[in-house]
């Protein structure tokens, strides 16, 4: 399953919280240099337009955090109670 489809499974009620925490993971990552430049620019585009807490924004944040910090990303989804997404993420990685 693609990360785009996985992001669609995050309930809208959790978009804000998931977005905030994924941003924290991404900005605080020690692997930040692994961020693909195109993906970084896409995230900046959505950030400028206040769209990081939307389906499209979450897709890109999820993509970034899975590249930089896959374990922390999975832990976050567990913390948010999204067990189905945990399974999906494990299958993709």
């Amino acid at each position: 399953m693609t990360l785009e489809k996985i992001a669609r499974n995050i309930p809208a009620s959790l978009w804000d919280e998931a977005s905030e925490k994924l941003i924290d993971i991404t900005l605080g990552s020690r692997n930040a240099s692994k961020m693909p430049s195109d993906l970084a620019k896409t995230i900046l585009y959505y950030w400028q337009r206040d769209q990081l807490a939307t389906e499209v924004g979450l897709h890109r944040l999820l993509e970034a955090s899975m590249i930089l910090e896959p374990e922390k990303t999975v832990s976050l989804m567990k913390e948010l109670g999204l067990s189905e997404i945990v399974v999906m993420l494990k299958e993709t990685s």
């Binding site: 240099s33 430049s37 970084a40 900046l44 950030w47």
Partner: peptide, 12 residues
């Protein structure tokens, strides 16, 4: 910092 982090904070 990496350019995208500085830019992220600039937007913020």
């Amino acid at each position: 910092d990496l350019y995208w982090k500085t830019t992220f904070y600039a937007i913020q």
